[in-house]
């Protein structure tokens, strides 16, 4: 879509674009190209000289078992968070869409966790499940469960999954509710007149019409887990115990800062860029086409 009526000034548009272009070039293109360049370099321990080593950083990366571990952790983490937060948000949205009294109040009471910083969400859950003083952890102990996320990798993973899900439900809920409210009532009424039960109406009409929303949310959730959960992991587990909760983003941070391996860290950044670009491309391709059954 293009404007018919436009202005013909020669210099003005460039002036208007200048601030944004400066920011984007200095803080986006320059560092992104640096990351790609560094991923082909090997720096010595003192950072004095660096050699161009082609793809060795990448080869080394994919041979490193801890990188494979980070991939698996990220995959488990993102699928569980996406599955849990999408299904519970869908349940809540369907209930709130029943035009019962107080939908507005329910909405207000359910959306605010969106505003809570991931790191803060992590702290809240850490406190509840802190093995020696957490309220929930103590209840678990009384039930005879030896709960200890500081030592048990599965417990640690469960804890970050819960914190991440808690924060993401509000976002998914809003989009599902908007999606449900855009479905024409007449279609649902027609099905009801034909004698379809509410369960049947949900699976044969509402759910298929929601599929574009669901697919869009799936991609957004995966991207959320990839990047925004850094704060949760850093505040709850620090990637531990024994790297059981070390995701790809956490590893980039950890290797670059604490391990001092800039070339390897840059190579990881490049791999992540490729993944994100791939996900975005998938999203554009399918969401644009509006997946319907």
């Amino acid at each position: 879509m293009e404007k018919r009526a436009i202005y013909n000034n020669k210099l003005l548009p460039y002036l208007l674009l200048t601030p944004q272009m400066i920011v984007v070039l200095v803080f986006f293109y320059w560092p992104a190209s640096q990351a790609i360049y560094q991923s082909f370099l090997l720096e010595d321990a003192f950072g004095l000289r660096s050699d161009f080593i082609w793809f060795e950083n990448f080869v080394e990366l994919f041979q490193d078992p801890s990188y494979g571990n980070a991939f698996v952790v990220t995959a488990i983490f993102s699928t569980t968070v996406a599955a849990l937060s999408l299904s519970s948000a869908l349940l809540l949205a369907v209930m709130a869409d029943r035009q019962i009294k107080g939908t507005g109040i329910y909405k207000t009471l359910l959306i605010w966790p969106y505003a809570v910083a991931p790191a803060i969400a992590g702290v809240l859950w850490l406190f509840m499940f802190q093995p020696s003083l957490g309220v929930v952890a103590q209840a678990l102990r009384k039930l005879g469960i030896d709960w200890n996320p500081l030592l048990n990798g599965n417990h640690a993973m469960l804890l970050v999954v819960m914190a991440a899900t808690w924060k993401q439900i509000s976002y998914n809920f809003l989009f599902f509710l908007a999606g449900l409210q855009s479905i024409p009532r007449s279609v649902i009424e027609a099905a009801a007149i034909d004698g379809a039960s509410s369960t049947r109406r949900f699976w044969t009409i509402i759910f298929p019409l929601l599929s574009p929303t669901a697919f869009f949310l799936l991609v957004v959730n995966v991207v959320y887990v990839f990047f925004d959960t850094f704060g949760i992991i850093d505040s709850v587990t620090g990637g531990g115990p024994a790297k059981a909760t070390e995701t790809l983003v956490y590893k980039v941070f950890f290797d670059g800062r604490l391990g001092g391996n800039l070339g390897g860290s840059a190579a990881q950044s490049v791999v992540m860029m490729v993944i994100v670009i791939g996900l975005t491309a998938v999203q554009f391709r399918y969401v644009e086409r509006k997946v319907h059954y």
């Binding site: 640096q34 980039v252 941070f253 975005t280």
Partner: peptide
Amino acid sequence: ITLMLPVEVRIYPTYAIV
């Protein structure tokens, strides 16, 4: 294009520039 890459993936080079 800047939509595609959040700050997390280019974190160290950005840090160096700042």
